[in-house]
């Protein structure tokens, strides 16, 4: 789907005017409706399926493995696949790199089993279809998947440095994984205005995009700008960065409350 020059010009004018009007009538901080189903993959420890109102869809599976954390330092790993994109394409690689950076902010002590062993979490993301920059969708999916993850309950002792033993688990009981996963918000900058969650047509006329990470009530790094199209890209007023951060700070908690 592509937009004509006249359509783009109309969209740009209405989004950049002093009283900005989004094509679907949303407020600047308002998200499109999303549908989330969790725990639908029987062979994973946690899973989620997230569908945006424009038909973008993404499935996420969380699997775990017991590793020696003195050897394996990286306890959470994200792998992203986007339908129609090569694995080494710049889009897939840069999104994977962004998620591996932000997922490192998770408190890995929650994954520790004994003094020697920990769970290693593998998060596999498959984006089935996407019409706008899918980062926000993926991060909401990862959030829901991790919040629906149950890991086997440890029954052997915690102290295994003195007596060498492998961790053993309960046959049926599972423990809910209690990490607070970070979220990523995509904001579009059009003229002097800033909008959360740009749809396809808004991304096409955005002057720039802002990627803001949020965790436990506040904005955290990574924060970066990202071109959302290749025709309208240009610089913007530096104060808009702080405006975007304030917007996410203000409404981040409400959005998280809506997710759970």
């Amino acid at each position: 789907m592509s937009l004509s020059i006249a359509e783009k010009s109309y969209l740009f004018d209405s989004l950049s005017s002093a009283q900005a009007l989004r094509p679907d009538g949303r407020l600047p901080y308002q998200f499109r409706p999303i549908e989330i189903y969790t725990d639908f993959l029987p062979s994973s420890n946690g899973s989620s399926r997230i569908i945006a109102s424009d038909g973008s869809e993404c499935i996420i599976s969380v699997k775990s493995k017991v590793v020696d954390h003195t050897v394996e330092k990286d306890l959470v790993q994200v792998d992203i696949d986007i339908a129609g994109e090569r694995d080494d394409s710049i889009l897939v690689e840069s999104i994977t790199s962004l998620f591996n950076k932000i997922i490192d902010t998770i408190d890995v002590s929650k994954l520790q089993l004994t003094q020697k062993y920990s769970f290693k979490i593998y998060i596999d993301v498959l984006v089935l279809s996407t019409y706008s920059y899918p980062v926000s969708l993926i991060s909401f999916g990862i959030y829901s998947a991790l919040n629906s993850t149950y890991l086997p309950k440890l029954i052997s002792s915690f102290d295994d440095l003195e007596v060498e033993e492998l961790p053993t688990f309960h046959d049926y009981d599972l423990v809910k994984l209690d990490v607070s996963p970070p979220l990523i918000f995509v904001l579009a900058i059009v003229g002097d205005n800033i909008f959360i969650d740009p749809a396809f047509n808004e991304s096409k006329v955005a002057n720039n995009g802002l990627i803001i990470s949020w965790s436990q009530g506040k904005v955290i790094a990574p924060v970066r700008t990202m071109a959302l199209n290749n025709t309208y890209v240009k610089g913007f007023k530096p104060s808009l960065v702080q405006e975007g951060i304030d917007l996410v700070n203000k409404y981040g908690q409400d959005i998280v409350n809506a997710l759970v």
Binding site: A221, P222, V223, R224, T225, G235, F236
Partner: peptide, 10 residues
């Protein structure tokens, strides 16, 4: 006057 890019890592 114009910001073209911003990059902050954790």
């Amino acid at each position: 006057d114009q910001l073209l890019g911003l990059w902050k890592d954790p």
